[in-house]
Computed example of a mutant assay.
Amino acid sequence: MRRLSDRLTPVLLDLDGAFEDQGVLVEEALAAGGDQVAARDLGPALRLWSRPPALDALRDRLSRAAPSGPSLVFTGSGDFHHVSPLLIERAIAASWSGPVTVLHFDNHPDWVRFENGLHCGSWVGRAARLPGVAKVVTVGVCSRDVERPTPKGAHLDLIEDGRLEIYPYRAPDGGPALKVGSVTRPTVESLGEAAFVDLLAARIETDAVYVTIDKDVLRTADAATNWDQGRTSLSFLEAMLTRVLDEHRLIGADIVGDWTRPRYGGGLTAAVLKQAEALLDQPWTAPADAVRQVNEGVNRRLLRLFVQMAA
């Protein structure tokens, strides 16, 4: 049964120019009562990873320029996924009425440790420990980041105490399940998509839910990002969202995963380190223009779905 959500305001957070070529998305977001927040001056210092001053500057910008109520925030590249804890904090503050489950769709677990700031691969640990968050449920991982998690600095304590559940689309070894520590979870592929939708709905035990989507969870036919792509189809993502949002109260959401040409900042040393890290972790070849254009269509479909389900 539908738990009525508050009105959801679309917000285009411009950190990297992702919406310059997405004019129809901008029009639809504004027509739905949305807002635009200019923050491209903060983007280079925030991109890939951020120190506290850059995060504080974004927090201040959001407090002054973004609507205070429940929002659907588009933030551009997945290099900015570590902005999500700030957005989750705002959503809880605006709509607090009990514990919240963070539903996280991603090709990567984003669960490692990162000192003195946040990394786009480290934010899940921060989100899971926010006041009011019951747990994070991560869906769709296909990357090998889940292999040998201990030397990579993963937050395995969150797995063990049930505050983080990971359901890969396909396990790195091709098996039917993923074992992390003492916990084993089935893969989407082993269960079948229809059965997994039922499982996912059962694992969200709170009335309230916050959704965060990195479009690199999608297969290459459905998105083009700055990272490697997963195996989830857009239609399957929509099926999972529809089921969850039909049964729970949505307090907010964010979407990352557009491809944008990176500009790194935060000081000369930080910019050099970020560029070196990107060369090691990200594809070297940019997607063709025609391939990148699919992102706007995906954003528009997700915009309509969220707005309709929250109505």
Rank of each mutant, 00 (worst) to 15 (best):
D60K: 13
G192V: 03
V291L: 09
P131R: 10
N107W: 05
G98S: 04
L303S: 00
G230R: 12
G297R: 09
T184D: 02
S190P: 04
V211W: 00
H155Q: 07
D106H: 02
L58M: 06
L241H: 07
V209G: 02
T260W: 03
T242V: 09
G181F: 03
V26E: 11
A290Q: 10
P67R: 12
N299K: 01
A221F: 11
A270N: 06
A127Y: 05
G125T: 07
F306M: 06
T75H: 12
A177D: 11
H108R: 00
Q293Y: 08
L234I: 10
T212R: 01
G98W: 06
G33P: 04
E27F: 04
A65Q: 14
T75G: 14
E89Q: 14
E189V: 10
L199W: 00
L279I: 08
L48D: 12
L12Q: 06
W227N: 03
T260P: 02
R163S: 07
I159R: 00
V197H: 06
V183L: 05
I255R: 00
E160P: 00
A177R: 12
T225H: 11
A128H: 13
S68M: 06
G33V: 05
K274T: 08
V124P: 01
A290W: 13
A94T: 07
L87N: 08
G117Q: 14
I92Q: 02
P151Q: 09
C142L: 11
A208Y: 05
V180T: 13
M240L: 14
P262E: 04
L191W: 02
A202T: 07
R300E: 09
D56R: 12
S122M: 09
R2I: 15
N295F: 06
D198G: 07
L12M: 15
P67N: 09
S71P: 09
K135S: 12
R144S: 12
G17C: 10
V256E: 00
A154H: 14
V112K: 13
R51P: 04
T225D: 07
P172I: 06
D60L: 08
R148F: 08
A38S: 11
Q293R: 15
G230S: 12
P131H: 15
T101G: 00
T269R: 14
D60P: 04
D281K: 15
W284T: 13
G265M: 00
A177T: 14
H119W: 15
N107C: 13
R185K: 13
L42M: 01
R203N: 02
I251R: 00
E147V: 13
A290R: 15
T187Y: 03
D145Y: 11
R261S: 13
D216T: 10
A223S: 15
E115W: 13
G117A: 09
A91F: 10
H155K: 03
S5W: 03
S95E: 15
G265Y: 02
D173T: 10
T285M: 05
G132M: 12
E193F: 04
A201H: 04
G175V: 08
G33D: 05
D145F: 09
R126D: 12
F74A: 14
L4M: 09
R292V: 14
V102H: 00
P52D: 06
L8S: 04
A224R: 09
A286N: 11
T285L: 14
S233Y: 14
R219P: 01
A171D: 08
D173M: 14
T225I: 10
A310G: 08
G297W: 11
